[in-house]
Amino acid sequence: MRTTVLGVAALVCAAVLTGAAPAFADGGSATPSPVPTAPGEPSAEPSDAPTTAPSAEPTAAPSEAPGDQVSVVPSGAPNTGVTAPSSDGKGGLVGGGAAAAVVLGGGAALVVRRRRANGA
């Protein structure tokens, strides 16, 4: 029984090892070589990207994005003028009062003249 168990275990280990080894061997021998050789190429791409993209965008972004154009449009028209409420009203009252005084004064003058004319 032990021998069969050990035998099975040994077979499993062997199968795993043989199954795994080719996978490493295949992948390690063929594909790894492009990766190390490719680093020359990938390094060219990243060098292009950081120099063009980040350097161009930051210069454009601060001058364009925040603070440019109106971000919140107000509603309606602004009330940028308050008239003097007392000026018109007072002016009218003052004008009316002056006119009344003139009329009263004129009437008094007429009465005095008539009295003098009758009395004399």
Binding site: S63, E64, G67, D68, Q69, V70, S71, V72, P74
Partner: peptide, 11 residues
């Protein structure tokens, strides 16, 4: 108006 550009900026 603080939601408009600073004078001299685009807008």
């Amino acid at each position: 108006y603080e939601h408009s550009p600073v004078p001299g900026r685009t807008g």
